[in-house]
Nucleic acid binder design. Structure first.
Lengths: 209, 209
DNA sequence: TAGATTGTTAATCGATTAACAATC
DNA sequence: TAGATTGTTAATCGATTAACAATC
């Protein structure tokens, strides 16, 4: 059993993934840790340490093959797991997420959208019909999504969360302001937009970064 | 000149702010680091260390006065600076941000919204009229906003960013996928939604948190 | 072979936790 | 005064950087 990878490393992987994707588009075949470090403004040492958490992806005297490295990182980030996701709460935030996020690129299929508002039920977004919450348990049983995107008000979020955990959803991308203490076996990523905005204000005030 | 506060501490402040706001609503007058630590699931030691970066807010034998502490943290987070913000790019992401984020609570005034699409120009959102990008320099000169929220496509983001820096904007809340290497004196908070989603997928795959 | 660059160990740095004296 | 809890120092833990031997 190999040692657990620090979460600091994990949080950097998506950024590597983006940069490597861009390098492929730009026609790069190989890249050294030094060259990548200059582009990304991190140390070459950190890059090598990070990649070595997962085993050696490079070759002495050569560097890293961009394509191979991109595939390795994609695989670590579960792109090839092809998880299905559902989105719950089709307000303007849900709408923005459904429209803006490139799910494909991350190997994710947005499989269903749910709301309780009759005005939006039946509308189509990227070929996905918005369904009524009444249909959600049936939908989950049939389609077995792993991910739920929570873009509903805090007041309704907890009840929906509990239901979805019971139905077997494993990961939650939480845009509601609900604070969750994740149960065993459940993964959560909280997007507290306001927290980020406040951090920005602190930086401005203190003339940082 | 006091020692710079670690950014790990800063990133925790908005969460303290949220919890303290809730405690006030719940009628709490005082709270000890131990009690707060149980609610927030962090160590009491960390809480005391964090607060002491800014000077002693508590009292031995008593704990912390919730109201006073909330005000101190608000002030550290520049809530009383009353920064003005503009939002650039009124697509569905811009729309969602303008509608969902509680700017007031953070002492921020969303003062103007800009786009280039004639279909949305002139519409009103929370009493703010969407203006054409042609008016942005004039608007900035008159209103002197400090913050710009970038919710426009990557392809257009760089040019707008450069213009706004020139016009005196100090902080950018960046939802575009543009990578920015911040110039001297400019603060940036990047919201790479996709990065968070990929991190979630990693956690699910590895059964974490 | 010579040059380049990784993989990996060791050194440094920073952040978290523990402990306890100070003090309300 | 006794009890509680902070502020703060010291110990531990973890993450980053530096250095260099291994090797392509």
């Amino acid at each position: 059993m190999k040692k657990q990878v620090p979460s600091t490393v994990i949080r950097r992987l998506p950024r590597y993934h983006r940069y490597l994707g861009d390098l492929i588009k730009a026609g790069y075949v190989r890249i050294s840790s030094r060259e990548l470090s200059e582009k990304m403004r991190v140390t070459a040492s950190q890059i090598r340490q990070d990649f070595n958490c997962f085993g050696g992806f490079g070759q002495q005297g050569y560097g890293y093959n961009v394509n191979a490295l991109f595939k390795e990182i994609s695989s670590i980030l579960a792109v090839d797991m092809h998880y299905k996701a559902i989105l719950v709460g089709y307000g303007n935030l849900g709408n923005a997420i459904a429209n803006n996020v490139n799910f494909d690129k991350r190997g994710i299929e947005l499989a269903g959208i749910f709301d309780i508002n009759d005005n939006v039920i039946g509308t189509k977004i990227r070929d996905i019909e918005v369904m009524h919450m009444d249909e959600i348990t049936n939908f989950i049983e049939i389609n077995q999504p792993k991910i739920a995107i929570l873009t509903l008000p805090k007041s309704e979020a907890k009840a929906v969360f509990d239901l979805l955990v019971k139905m077997g959803i494993k990961g939650f991308w939480n845009f509601s302001n609900m604070e969750i203490n994740p149960p065993e076996g459940i993964s959560i990523e909280n997007m507290h937009l306001g927290d980020s905005l406040m951090t920005l204000c602190y930086k401005i005030k203190n003339d940082l970064q």
